[in-house]
């Protein structure tokens, strides 16, 4: 009987591959997960056509009468005024969109936000799968093997990150097809940056959800907790609207919300003209978030995984 050496990488890869195999065997779940942001993009992104408010069409039925100034014998044609007004108006519209959203169309703005959303919803399942593993006894079996406890947690984290990255790719490709306006500063190298940013937020968020699920055996409770966290995380961020448009108290929350930083990082790398100093701040913030929360997750798993 030989002494085997359980090592963290071996255990981590085995457990992660298990999760990925399970995932690949249920394509319907993947489909549902991708369908959700598509619906958001298609309905909200296209319906909230903010730039159309400022377009020529919205003023087409306004009639301006001719202006006559008899003292000087001048008559200014109403159509001419309207034409000039429309030009100014369109100019203002583009500027307003540009100033508030950073891009001229709302669809591009929010479809990038959908990537953040899918990261949030994918990571939340990492906690759920922990609850299931406990209920089915799989977790107890894994706990009775010498595999390092951190490998158990990290496999869930890594799985969530890989899934988020995969799904983000699909969202990005679909957004491109549906008319995403890419900034001139975009280069294919930026994709690596996008993946890195998604990875960091996934690690942070899934560590959080896993820490919450460590002792839980009821998925209903876990679901309720996760929903409670996800909703404010989604709306108190820049996924749908720029934080500058929010009331101050909401802005304060949105500005510490890591989801805002991921969304901004991806926007910087795709639709915005790249601002390196902002991007660096985004990455530092996401990195610190990931490190702190995964450290908390590991510490708690050491203490609480074994009851």
């Amino acid at each position: 009987m030989s002494e085997y050496r359980p090592n963290i990488l071996r255990g981590l890869s085995a457990l992660t591959i298990r999760e990925l195999k399970k995932w690949a065997k249920e394509p319907i779940i993947l489909l549902m997960a991708i369908l959700q942001p598509i619906i958001w993009m298609g309905l909200l992104g296209k319906a909230m056509n903010l730039n159309a408010i400022f377009s020529v069409n919205s003023l087409s039925n306004v009639n301006i009468p001719d202006i006559k100034i008899p003292e000087y014998g001048i008559t200014i044609s109403g159509t001419l005024i309207k034409q000039r007004l429309l030009e100014v108006f369109e100019n203002i519209g583009t500027n307003v969109m540009q100033n508030f959203f950073g891009v001229t169309d709302y669809f591009s703005y929010m479809s990038v936000g959908m990537i953040s959303m899918i990261v949030m919803f994918t990571t939340m399942f990492s906690g759920m799968s922990m609850v299931w593993d406990r209920r089915l006894g799989f977790l107890d079996k894994v706990l009775s093997t010498p595999v390092p406890r951190s490998a158990i947690i990290f496999s869930k984290v890594l799985n969530a990150a890989l899934r988020s990255m995969f799904q983000a790719t699909i969202i990005l490709a679909l957004a491109a097809i549906l008319g995403l306006k890419i900034s001139p500063t975009f280069s294919p190298m930026n994709l690596l940056g996008i993946y890195a940013a998604i990875f960091l937020l996934s690690v942070g968020l899934s560590s959080l959800f896993l820490a919450l699920a460590l002792r839980s055996t009821r998925h209903e409770v876990q679901m309720a907790v996760v929903n409670l966290i996800n909703m404010p995380l989604m709306f108190a961020s820049n996924i749908f609207f720029p934080t500058s448009m929010m009331p101050e108290w909401l802005q304060a929350i949105a500005n510490v919300n890591p989801v805002s930083y991921l969304t901004d990082a991806i926007r910087q790398l795709t639709i915005f003209p790249l601002n390196s100093s902002t991007l660096v701040i985004d990455f530092v913030y996401l990195g610190v978030f990931a490190i702190i929360l995964s450290a908390i997750g590991i510490t708690l798993s050491w203490r609480y995984l074994t009851r």
Partner: peptide, 11 residues
């Protein structure tokens, strides 16, 4: 079975 083997670190 192979998953179990990986958890024990068996070559």
């Amino acid at each position: 079975i192979m998953l179990c083997a990986d958890l024990y670190g068996i070559p």
